[in-house]
Amino acid sequence: MAEFLQFLISGLTVGAVYALVALGFTLIYNASGVVNFAQGEFVMLGGMVTVFVSAAGVPLPLAALIAVCVAVVIGLLLHRFAIEPARGASAVTLIIITIGASILLRGIAQIVFDKQFHKLPSFSGDTPVDIFGAAVQPQSFWVLGGAAVVVLGLYAFLERTVLGKAVLATAANRLAARLVGINTTTIMALAFGGSAAIGAIAGILVTPITLTSYDVGTLLALKGFAAAMLGGMGNPLGAVVGGLLIGLLEAFGAGYLSSTYKDAFAFLVILVVLFAAPQGLFGRRAVERV
């Protein structure tokens, strides 16, 4: 029982990070139809910038805030100078642009920072909390709580504000959105900035547990992508559920089968989803009446 609980909590923790990455994918995909493979680099930036800024003597909370701002600026620049000029290009072209941006950001990070692994101190110490026999790192609560706050905040924004509804409207029907006067370019910029912030927050929360380096983004982006696919591309609820499921799958797979194949599970999920249910768990089937 204690073992099961241990796997459950570590699965949920890592799953919460995948969920945030998947949410970033979802937000940009909804606003622009682009699958942004530089999403993982936002996570990397969150962790790395916090590490280096706090190493320069800045208090951790401020360093984290700076990291989020840096990621948002990079996200906006990515939209302005890489995505916006290619407006109207095919989806494949746009995906290749984001892959290029991801490689570029990794290269710059390698030069500006370094190639080492880095750690952040846990936000509330390293004394494990005992929950029914499972030893839980306090940082896990930060990850789970932080992810919950981001998810609820995003939900409130999309459902309760006119600007949030404009994002949903742009996702649903771009032409109609422009006809009612929604500036869809601004909405796209907002989505890139918001995704960058969500990614960076995920990176900051998880770095005390998993360490960070210039290239952590690649694997996280793929896992987050698997989560978004599993949940149904473009569905925020699906992204969260998909992320948590993949985290749990990894944790239980590594615990009960073999940790050697831990990273393989996410890719297995991508393949199974593509073969068996390309629309994902919560994917919208086209049932609109005409």
Partner: peptide, 17 residues
């Protein structure tokens, strides 16, 4: 070209965006 996933009321609200 209504906003299918949004409610009738939200569609009207967005008309006044």
């Amino acid at each position: 070209q209504v906003f299918g996933p949004l409610t009738v009321e939200d569609n009207l609200r967005l008309g006044a965006y």
